[in-house]
């Protein structure tokens, strides 16, 4: 019996990346079920999956005493490859293929304004909160500010600037918590902020950013608004990844000295 377990451990460790695919697949599947049956679709499955991922990283960190979350467990080292910089950047670039340039132009100046505002505003708020909580170095302030833009911009920025893993985790957690708040909060504030037409949906997508937050939040408000919001939101991460580690970092560094 113990021979069989040893063999199983061996096959899982020897095929680390495949183990990671299977493992993350099961997490996604459980998350989709939780989203459907526990929250009646109000919280997007992907947001639940990311929260589970962070929770597992916590468990992995406590269990192994290491700094790399779940991938410090030998059998699950493939999670480190799957979620590492190479495949992460590869997959993010791939999403640009879905951007429809003609329809994007129709979003017009107001969508672009919202997009720029939606990158600057969260960044400033995030960086100020980080400052208030005692962070003083430009890399940490920029990474946490970028996390307030989206949970992708945060780690991409942090990785580019060489932020510590703890700051990266804070940055991702800020972005994920923001996405969850957008998903849950949108239906309740929709009326007050005039979210009932395509133009305001585009403004909303540009300002709130997170594609999962925007698409789930709008779906819970009015399904017909989803494509308009997603249209501007798809630009959000790309814009953030472009300006956060460059312009914003240089700005923060100039202020902090």
């Amino acid at each position: 019996m113990s021979d069989a377990i040893a063999l199983l451990e061996h096959i899982l460790a020897a095929n680390a990346l495949l183990t990671a695919f299977a493992f993350v697949g099961v997490v996604m599947w459980i998350s989709a079920a939780l989203s459907r049956y526990l929250t009646l679709g109000r919280i997007h499955g992907s947001a639940i999956a990311i929260i589970i991922g962070l929770a597992l990283a916590f468990g992995g960190g406590v269990w192994s005493g290491g700094k790399n979350g779940l991938s410090d467990i030998p059998m699950l080292s493939g999670i480190g490859i799957m979620g590492g910089a190479m495949l992460r950047d590869f997959a993010i670039v791939a999403t640009a293929f879905e951007v429809d340039v003609v329809r994007a132009r129709q979003a017009g100046a107001i969508g672009a304004t919202a997009l720029v505002l939606g990158t600057i505003l969260p960044f400033i708020v995030g960086a100020l909160v980080a400052y208030a909580f005692g962070y003083r170095d430009a890399i940490s302030l920029t990474t946490i500010g970028a996390g307030a833009v989206t949970y992708i911009v945060g780690p991409v920025t942090g990785a580019a600037l060489g932020a510590s893993s703890a700051v990266m985790a804070l940055s991702i957690a800020t972005g994920v918590f923001k996405a969850v708040l957008v998903m849950i909060g949108t239906p309740f504030v929709a009326k007050a902020i005039g979210l009932n037409n395509p133009r305001s949906a585009m403004v909303f997508g540009g300002l709130m950013g997170t594609v999962s937050g925007v698409s789930a939040g709008l779906a819970a408000t009015d399904r017909r608004l989803v494509p308009y919001g997603a249209l501007t939101a798809t630009f959000h991460t790309g814009l953030g990844c472009l300006v956060a580690p460059s312009l914003f970092f240089l700005g923060v560094r100039a202020i902090m000295g």
Partner: peptide, 9 residues
């Protein structure tokens, strides 16, 4: 991204 989240400190 889920795998990335699972790698964080």
């Amino acid at each position: 991204v889920v795998a990335m989240a699972a790698n964080q400190n």
